[in-house]
Design a protein around this nucleic acid. Sequence first.
DNA 1: GTCTATACGGCGATAGAC
DNA 2: GTCTATCGCCGTATAGAC
Lengths: 231, 231
Amino acid sequence: MRPLPRDVNRSHRRKGDRREAILDAAEALFSRHGYDGVTLRAIARRAGVDVALANYHFGPKRDLFDAVLMRRAEILNAWRSEALDAAIAQAAPAAPEIEAIIRAYLRPMLTGDHVSDEGWKNYFALIAYVNNSPEWGGQLMTQFFDPLIERFIEALRLSIPEAEPGDLYWAYHCLSGALTLAFAQTGRIDHLSKGVCRSDDLESAYEHIARFVTAGFEEIRQKAEARRVAS
Amino acid sequence: MRPLPRDVNRSHRRKGDRREAILDAAEALFSRHGYDGVTLRAIARRAGVDVALANYHFGPKRDLFDAVLMRRAEILNAWRSEALDAAIAQAAPAAPEIEAIIRAYLRPMLTGDHVSDEGWKNYFALIAYVNNSPEWGGQLMTQFFDPLIERFIEALRLSIPEAEPGDLYWAYHCLSGALTLAFAQTGRIDHLSKGVCRSDDLESAYEHIARFVTAGFEEIRQKAEARRVAS
DNA sequence: GTCTATACGGCGATAGAC
DNA sequence: GTCTATCGCCGTATAGAC
């Protein structure tokens, strides 16, 4: 029996497939164990490729990490940007409600078909890791996401014009912390609530975080309004 | 010149000093680089002791990590427990205001003499790391802190009796995420706000987080109240 | 260009001698 | 309590197959 020609053996693999497989494996492992908790060998094993292939495609480990982060960043930013545009268009010519802006920010990450996609779930968990990393949180989040965040904060500023300078940034900080903790999927809320809440119920997380955070921003608006009236 | 007797040479070291030095060094490094980002050699080097001493005192690396976490947990829990007791006593026989409970939770971590202490700063950053770790967040936070957290949630439930079952847990989740992101000290808010806000200004973080989070819990109370009236 | 096999220098945690 | 030795795995470079 003659062996099948190589191209038939591998015809189910499209070009670039193994490159993607490495990114998928790296995404899953980095999101769970952090940068230092993952070896290139573990990534290669999971991707079903040789160790050296990761190095061939991406260079050193750190560059692979960046590549993982970059891969979905533009897609996510585009989703959010569109959601913000839609909220602004819907309210025009007035400024959108605070809640509409908050939901435009949260919805692309917490609802939709992709939340059940393993790759996206891992990616969001990776963002949670990076956001809370003292080493990289400042630099990487700024690099990949801040231009968009600034758009959101500007939109909020139009709805809360009298807010004090730092208020909106600290409020965004609270939003960011709550959101990324949800993505970390630690299972803690499951224990704490004795099963009433589930870490993996992102639909539920979406509603609760959206309401909680909206209330926080509304409070800033009311305080600012009260100051304006008093003066 | 005769050498000084050994006990004079070392008299400035109390017994257990090197043990504490190892814990201090581990605390500082783990909080910044995570569990896997730190080697026992780096810890030993920073503590000025031999590599093997850490193993002698604490056993394997993982047990040292637990020891670091445990060392200050009881002190912190006691502070918070006292702050909660004081808030309850002050409001008695009524239930305390939501804001008083929130501030009792936040104040021991964000204000006071110890916030300028390097050791405590590192410890809080370590808690931030653990809280957001998918591997350990659920198990370790539950183990070290949940009994106290349950006291706070019960206190909040007395002030918000009609809250739906999951509401208070998700609200606490938001509080926890915002607080721990502040402790991670990533410097991101500094970039984002172009210097208006500073990651290391915990006094400012305390005020902003306290107000934001109080508003979130108040919103739950108002919603629950509205439901009660409607029925 | 894509991929594998292999090799290398270095550093990791920890056990056992002292 | 301290020092040393051990053994394994680390990231990466390279040579060459397809």
